[in-house]
Design a protein around this nucleic acid. Structure first.
Lengths: 344, 344
DNA sequence: TAAGGTTTTAGAAGCGCTTCCAAAAAATTT
DNA sequence: AAATTTTTTGGAAGCGCTTCTAAAACCTTA
């Protein structure tokens, strides 16, 4: 059925080795021969079978991305960067979406066994050392984005610093009661981020001479619903916060929704700042700490290619910084009212 | 290096054919033999090489998606449905993102040549008949989502009806000056949709006894910027519209932004209705005609699997309906002011 | 023009599997 | 117990390529 290298060889009147040689731009082919082969290829509209090829060269020219909830804005924007890079490099992009811990483990343990992809980008998920070692043994390079492992090249945001600056900006605006909505830690998604951001919050509070009130810190799901629920909890305090820092834009959106629902003026009665800088935040004019999401994706691929080219390259830890984006949801505290007042 | 079927056979003390048979749950293997093989597999932690396997069985257990601008909310939501289905079926998902006509043509012509994927889902892009025939000849089944070809199973939204109902809902609220922002047609992305929606608009206008004013129809890019630009044009008319129907939510967002920028109250001074029902629309409380995006993705995969199972299955045309989602951007026209007034 | 050196070429081997066929083993019948 | 049938098994062939080896073809040079 399909035309093979034998057909091309026959039509061109050469051996299959020669055809293969012109296909792989090997040097030693007489140019007259090359012409013959090329025109046979054109005549037959031949394309080499990538599978048979992979069989020998042990490369697929495909890279895999393991990503939790790929459709979340955060993931989408990183993925976009990844796609930009893979397209430019002529690599195929295989998406392994994970929704459960089982799926994550399945991919972690199964993928390295067999070379369906040449390398892996892992987003927001941290393989433990044992898994990382399996990758190394299997010769499957992996790069982490938005997580960290000492054994793998990792691209991380400086979360401590980001959270620090977010809270500091709020303190500088006169806020003393600052709520912090953090993401859940269990479930194993988004591990360190939550921790690091908490550290940054503590530090900023300390520097501003504000004593940390545990009531003002609530942990919620990384979703709008989580943000909403946490906001209710925060606003029901005897002494509610005048500003809220959410560990992700998605959660900040939930804060915004709740404020709107309660007719609480933003930013007059409540300042809100998020974290991530997803496209959506721009639309809603949400102040946020922006991460270079697209860049992280592209850089992830670049680093992966370096590991592919040099198998014994040692892992790097690359830190990227956030930038403060002050939009319309943060304002100076009106000294008149020290706490949020609900306008009806 | 890697453990092969020969290693397993040796350890189990059987022939490679036997190992292969237990791997492929073939019936005729004595259960005692099966046990031996299974424990050898476990002992060696063996996984068959999917590439070598594909070489013979001519299947990859991967399906490809060709999608323009995969990161657009519309695409993401369809993709999510696709991922749900592929994960459930244990298929891998390869994403071919297209940003230019060249890329589209590249994938259209190159992909069918060689079986890197077993089948194709094509979103919002219409391959012409010649291409569709190539697919068929190559034995590569393809299903279209959000486009149509007579030669391929197609999942389309009833765009005429959707646009009709959108405009009708506006007319029923008393609006007579209804602007319509349509998407561009050239560029070959999103072809019929724009056309069909225009037809629906015409029909609804006619039924409501409103004469069509060509000035009220403007064509713009499928983006927020497009929506913004079109809105400015519309509002600068001597007799501006009191309501705008945008052919996509993304464009409707641009309308919303412009209204906000001009301090034009929505929906009091301007009603807005979009099309698509992306998640974002919910957040902004945008009224819209909702498409079953997730379903389209899932159904696309289901149909593709049917074509995979039965090569000679003939193409189907499946029509899906939109549902009207009235949220906070549409309101009854205050008869007092017949046209939008700009509040300063 | 022959010898020696260099470039180019044909095609066998082999990648790790599935599938097939023929042979071995087991079960059944006589 | 032998003959026959049925089940199970080993391993060769072959999927479409790349790579390697050895031979052919082409250059030099004497």
């Amino acid at each position: 059925m399909a035309v093979t290298i034998y057909d091309v060889a026959r039509v061109a009147g050469v051996g299959i080795g020669t055809v293969s040689r012109v296909l792989n731009q090997s040097q030693s082919v007489k140019s007259s021969t090359r012409e013959k082969v090329l025109s046979a290829i054109a005549a037959l509209n031949y394309t080499p079978d990538p599978i048979a090829r992979s069989m020998i060269i042990k490369r697929t020219d495909a890279i895999g991305v393991i990503v939790p909830f790929f459709y979340r804005p955060f993931s989408v924007e990183v993925l976009r960067g990844v796609a930009t890079a893979t397209t430019r490099l002529g690599q195929e992009l295989v998406v392994f979406n994970v929704e459960t811990n089982e799926q994550r483990d399945h991919y972690f343990t199964r993928l390295p066994m067999r070379r369906r992809v040449d390398g892996l980008i892992i987003i927001s998920l941290a393989p433990d050392d044992e898994i990382a070692i399996t990758f190394a043994e299997a010769g499957l390079p992996a790069v982490l984005v938005d997580t960290y492992s000492p054994l793998l090249t990792s691209l991380v945001i400086n979360n401590v610093e980001g959270a620090y600056r977010a809270v500091k900006s709020l303190a500088e605006k006169g806020h003393r009661r600052i709520g912090f909505i953090n993401g859940v830690i269990e479930g194993n998604f988004k591990f360190n981020q939550a921790n690091d951001r908490l550290i940054g919050v503590h530090r900023a509070l300390a520097d501003a001479g504000i004593v940390f009130d545990p009531e003002l810190m609530v942990t919620a799901e990384w979703s709008r619903a989580g943000g909403r629920q946490a906001t209710h909890q925060l606003l029901n305090l005897k002494e509610p916060p005048t500003a809220i820092f959410a560990a992700s834009d998605i959660q900040a959106l939930g804060v915004l929704e709740t404020a709107r629902q309660l007719n609480l003026a933003v930013p007059e009665a409540l300042s809100i700042i998020g974290f991530d800088g997803i496209e959506l935040s721009e639309l809603l004019e949400l102040s946020t700490m922006q991460q270079p999401l697209h860049l992280m994706g592209e850089l992830g691929v670049t680093k992966l290619m370096e590991h592919l080219a040099d198998t014994k390259k040692s892992p790097e830890l690359i830190r990227l910084d956030t930038s403060l984006l002050e939009r319309r949801t943060t304002a100076t505290l009106k000294s008149a009212s020290k706490s949020a007042s609900i306008k009806i």
